[in-house]
Simulated assay, not measured.
Amino acid sequence: MHTLGEVKAHCDGGADTVTLTRAEWESICAVLRSYCATGKQRREAEHETERVKRIARPVWRACARTSRHMRWAIACSPHAVSTGLVIEWEMRLRHAMTVRWQDLPPGHPGRRPRGR
């Protein structure tokens, strides 16, 4: 198998191509196959990307609101924060990941028209 230095020296000498053996070509193809995705994997990745885009704004708002409330609670009683408040903060953050149709941007294809 050619080393990177050999290929670089070959190309620096004026050559435009490098001849590979069958084994070298197959090893390159094996590495490339590991990076290929099936149509199903690609669709799943696209759906996950869309899900992350949908929940990003509501989660950001919930994080900002929760952190303000946490600062206020700690400032009011620095030695003890009630369990109820902690549960409320956790639920607020969990519910922020539930997306409503209104959270989608106006031009988003998944957004329902107002009449439905």
Rank of each mutant, 00 (worst) to 15 (best):
M1Q: 07
M1T: 07
M1C: 04
L4S: 08
E6I: 04
E6L: 05
E6N: 07
V7R: 10
V7D: 05
K8R: 14
K8G: 01
K8A: 10
K8P: 01
K8L: 15
H10E: 07
H10Q: 08
C11H: 07
C11F: 08
D12P: 00
D12E: 13
G13H: 05
G14E: 06
G14V: 07
A15S: 11
D16T: 12
D16E: 09
T17R: 13
V18N: 08
T19N: 10
L20G: 00
A23H: 08
A23D: 14
A23V: 11
W25E: 13
E26R: 14
S27H: 15
A30D: 13
V31Y: 12
L32N: 03
L32G: 03
S34G: 15
S34H: 11
S34Q: 13
C36H: 09
T38F: 05
G39N: 15
K40D: 15
Q41M: 10
R43Q: 15
A45Q: 11
E46Q: 14
H47C: 10
T49V: 10
T49H: 15
T49W: 13
R51E: 11
R51D: 02
R51N: 04
V52G: 02
V52S: 08
V52F: 11
K53F: 04
R54Q: 11
R54Y: 00
A56E: 10
R57W: 00
R57F: 01
V59Q: 01
R61T: 11
A62G: 06
C63Y: 06
T66I: 11
T66G: 01
S67M: 14
R68A: 11
H69T: 03
H69W: 08
M70N: 00
W72K: 12
W72Y: 10
A75G: 10
A75S: 15
A75H: 10
C76E: 12
S77H: 09
P78S: 05
H79A: 08
H79E: 13
V81F: 00
V81K: 00
S82W: 01
T83C: 06
G84M: 02
L85D: 01
V86E: 03
I87M: 04
I87F: 04
E88L: 09
W89Q: 06
M91G: 02
R92H: 06
R92K: 05
L93K: 03
R94G: 02
H95Y: 04
H95W: 04
A96K: 01
M97P: 00
T98C: 03
V99G: 00
V99M: 00
R100T: 05
R100V: 02
R100L: 12
R100H: 07
Q102N: 04
G107T: 06
G107A: 09
P109V: 05
P113M: 09
G115Y: 09
R116K: 02
